[in-house]
Simulated assay, not measured.
Amino acid sequence: MGRRGSRTPGIGANAFDPEAVGALLAAKQRGADKPGSILVADLATAEALARTPA
């Protein structure tokens, strides 16, 4: 269970799936301007997520 006071404890999505991220933001009633946290296993994954399209 999530921390005390959390409105949507234990919810997550695949950060590489735009549709899943959109559904997560909708479920948490957040816009893209207030994204959630991303947990990663290693630096290579963090770097892949941090890249922006050219």
Rank of each mutant, 00 (worst) to 15 (best):
D17S: 11
P35S: 07
T52L: 10
M1C: 05
A27N: 14
P18W: 04
Q29D: 13
V21L: 02
E47G: 00
P9W: 02
R3Q: 13
A50D: 07
A15K: 04
N14S: 11
K34Q: 06
D17W: 06
T52R: 09
V40W: 03
L25W: 10
K28W: 06
R30F: 07
P35T: 07
G31S: 10
A20P: 01
Q29H: 12
K28G: 15
L43P: 00
A32H: 13
G36W: 02
E47A: 08
A20K: 10
L49I: 13
P53W: 04
G31I: 04
K34F: 08
L25D: 08
S6F: 01
A44F: 04
V40N: 02
V21Q: 00
R3H: 12
P53H: 04
V21M: 07
G5I: 01
L43F: 00
T45F: 03
A20I: 08
P53K: 07
T8P: 00
L25N: 15
P35A: 03
T52P: 00
P53M: 07
I38A: 10
A50V: 02
G5A: 02
G5E: 00
T45W: 07
L39S: 01
R4F: 10
A46G: 02
R51A: 12
L24V: 11
R7H: 08
L25K: 13
A54D: 08
R4T: 02
M1A: 12
G5N: 04
D33R: 05
T45P: 00
G10M: 04
E47D: 12
P9D: 08
K28V: 02
R3T: 12
G36Q: 12
D42C: 12
S6A: 13
A48D: 04
L49W: 13
S37F: 14
A41P: 01
T8I: 09
G36V: 15
R4C: 05
G31V: 05
G36M: 15
A23G: 08
L43N: 09
A26S: 14
D42G: 11
L25M: 15
F16T: 11
P53L: 10
A44Q: 13
T45Y: 05
S37T: 13
S6T: 14
A15T: 06
E47I: 10
G36D: 12
G5V: 01
A54F: 02
D17Y: 03
G31D: 10
A15G: 09
D42H: 14
E47F: 01
A27S: 13
G12V: 01
D33K: 02
G10A: 09
R3P: 00
A32I: 13
K28R: 15
A41V: 08
K28A: 15
A13N: 03
T52E: 07
A44K: 13
P35V: 06
A46T: 12
A44Y: 04
M1V: 11
A54L: 11
L49H: 09
D17I: 06
